[in-house]
Design a protein around this nucleic acid. Structure first.
Lengths: 243, 243
DNA sequence: CGTTAGTTTGATGGTCCTCAAGCACTGTGG
DNA sequence: CCACAGTGCTTGAGGACCATCAAACTAACG
């Protein structure tokens, strides 16, 4: 691992020991940088994409718009995550991507990605495994919205986000920086922005967690885990069991 | 296509023209049949699976249990669908599977599947593409629970199920046979069973759809589509764009 | 210094849950 | 043949949770 490893390398290294060759391939994939500004969608719903992206800095959310104007945020991408990986591999574009803040991402043309997969199959497995982990999080998100009440939903979401960020060194059990607005939380959790505010106040006054000024601070990590019935197991797999 | 094509072949044929060789490979994958009885889980949560299944007859649901005892049904499998495909390919077992009725499924050892993928890459793409389509449905399910009210949620679910069944010749715009109980609907839609019952009555009295005696009957398909804001596009792709 | 985006709080009401009870149907064993 | 339990469906009453409407407040920004 170089002194300043990219977030993607950090994330994958948490699961599998990467060889020099694989590290080089990963570095090469992230050559072609581009920037996007906050609030302007990257890929519009229905638009077919020819390139995927690797998020380097900043946050993105993927969401679906409803005919009635409401939106549901499906997932967030943090540094080290892929954008549009499935769209590219299977040519099914599904949702839209909105940068939460100004971001930098590496453009990865489909052909480069496929070449990399062919050269280093172990890397391919690692990347697909990470993608599969993201999908497990979508399922967990579904469970949360379907079964948990607002408090537990919020607690679970903040904990899960913390776990993801910890993987790339951007968070600890103490807390993490978080550029989301309460509107983002509302669209994510299927709540109104007003109620999000009340839930946050409730959690703050219970001395569990504070969400304020772009920072999430855990005051009682264990208590929050209990409230959320948070099971970090589904994120804590030992890795993709590479051959 | 033979006189009595398997549901899987029917489904894939809707998207891509299969060669004789590919048909033969598909037939061979479905040799080793086994049966499971209604209500007894096939794979338990956390248990690592070495074989996937192709569902031949009957219905299955995949769900996650919460520590507090509630459960969220994530998805249903109908004939022609894979069970545990992702678990096998990436060794991440996630949720449990419960047969809704007595079922028959073809056991597919991982090695056979990988062999088949190697022999007929086009087939691999088709199968993975179908799996990706299933995941798009999970996302749509998430959107439904997050953003739609109970009536629209139910309407959308019944329509989506109809579309899936139509693909394997088990449903039309008139309706379809459906062995689910109202409890299944409740666990799927994140509603109480009592409320499910009221919603169904409401839809029946509005002359939109009837759910009764194991049969879903559409009375006003267009009206239902409008109520649900059902967009069949995400299921109506033209196929995996095979090379 | 007005505008805009985001946060905060109050009041009111609707959707949906919970508790409770009754009904229909099926299979089982006396 | 009938009592009985089990499963699933149906309906009512009361209340919790969360949405909606409304308004004030803060901070950032041109």
């Amino acid at each position: 691992m170089t002194v300043e490893a990219s977030p993607l390398i950090r994330k994958l290294s948490a699961f599998v020991r990467l060889s020099e060759v694989e590290l080089a391939v990963l570095e090469r994939l992230q050559q072609r940088r581009s920037s996007f500004i906050a609030g302007r969608d990257i890929v519009h719903q229905g638009q077919s994409a020819q390139t995927a992206y690797i998020l380097c800095t900043g946050w993105v959310c993927s969401y679906k718009l409803q005919p009635d104007g409401t939106r549901q945020i499906v997932d967030f991408q943090v540094p080290g995550d892929f954008l549009g990986l499935r769209s590219v591999l299977l040519r099914t574009s599904d949702h839209s991507f909105e940068p939460i803040v100004d971001i930098e991402a590496a453009e990865v043309p489909t052909s480069d990605l496929l070449d990399a997969f062919e050269q280093t199959p172990r890397l391919a497995t690692a990347i697909l495994w990470a993608a599969s982990r993201d999908e497990a999080m979508v399922v967990e998100h579904l469970v949360g919205i379907g079964q948990r009440d607002a408090d537990a939903r919020m607690a679970h979401f903040l904990l899960e986000l913390g776990s993801r960020l910890a993987l790339v060194g951007m968070g600890t059990k103490e807390g993490y920086d978080c550029p989301l607005t309460q509107y983002h939380l509302a669209d994510t959790l299927g709540l109104s922005a007003v109620h999000v505010n009340r839930v946050l106040r409730q959690l703050r006054e219970s001395e569990l967690v504070t969400f304020r000024d772009g920072r999430v601070t855990f005051h009682d990590y264990g208590g929050l885990v209990e409230l959320a019935e948070f099971d970090p197991e589904y994120l804590d797999h030992t890795g993709p069991l590479l051959a």
